[in-house]
Design a protein around this nucleic acid. Structure first.
Lengths: 156, 156
DNA sequence: CACAATTAAATTGTGCACAACTAAATAACG
DNA sequence: CGTTATTTAGTTGTGCACAATTTAATTGTG
């Protein structure tokens, strides 16, 4: 039962506190918790907020394009957009030129919400206790990680 | 309509590519995708894998303790543990000493699975294309972030 | 001891992520 | 032109996260 150092190392890696995914998952959920508090006033969930960000920034978009910006498919977006429509924040209508496509556009109410949303990022940044430069560095590190993982997933 | 520099800055923050949460969320989901592939052989989802890690490392634990390690409550764990039990990987039984508590323990089949799981972290690390030291640094940064966000959530 | 407060799991309900599939429209090609 | 392939949304089903509530057991206190 003598273990080589390679085996010992593999065992070490199984420890929960060694797993990068665990830290990442914890951070992601912690963020979600803060967003839940901050977005409560706006009546948005965090994924709904991301969709509104995309629409505020780019104007009316087909569902497909919204999904490309957020890496989400229609299985996630269709019901989410329906809820945003029920809330009166967006309208969805079939494109006349291409009837496969559904254009999503922000309503007046949705535009009005933007004014209140402007303060959200500041509150989130404050909650991190990181300064702007630290956040930028972490963000770029995470983006590297994501693209590495995405290419690995394609091959795996 | 002249904007002060403070207002302009707030507008900038609303840009999707400026939001740390977006990078974090994307990275977390990218990880999930890689885990889905790697864990498929083991018949585990990623949260199920985390639960198994905890049980492999600490031995039999009440549901409460499992939840403390993973920051999950019974609303998430109860159905998840039922599925693990159905899969034959764990057993759940009411504690004799405290009948409120349910002890979760790995079955022989669950123990056997550990041998195959040992190689999972290595494959995940490979997918990141980061070296061990880079991962360690990122992990510790994320842990700082999580604890800052957790304290902020308590106050907010 | 009796009764209130606390604790541990489970349940219910909402929303998101993702795989697999369907329906309808458009594009591509012989 | 007509048939096939592709594209776009939507639907269905599974699993997770989390809030709110429920049930049962235990602990604390007068």
């Amino acid at each position: 039962m003598s273990a080589t150092s390679a085996e010992a190392s593999a065992e070490d890696f199984l420890r929960l506190d060694q797993q990068i995914c665990f830290s990442l998952n914890a951070a992601s959920r912690a963020f979600n918790g803060v967003y839940r508090v901050v977005l409560k006033d706006l009546g948005l969930t965090y994924p709904q907020y991301l969709v509104m960000l995309v629409l505020w920034e780019h104007g009316p978009l087909p569902v497909k394009k919204v999904g490309e910006h957020l890496r989400l498919d229609s299985g996630t977006l269709s019901p989410l957009l329906k809820r945003l429509e029920t809330a009166g924040l967006v309208r969805r209508e079939r494109s006349a030129r291409d009837e496969r496509s559904v254009e999503v556009r922000v309503t007046e109410e949705g535009v009005a919400l933007r004014e209140r949303a402007v303060q959200v990022p500041r509150r989130i940044v404050a909650a991190t206790s990181f300064d702007v430069e630290e956040i930028r560095a972490l963000r770029s590190r995470l983006d590297e990680l994501t693209s590495a993982l995405d290419s690995a997933a394609l091959e795996g």
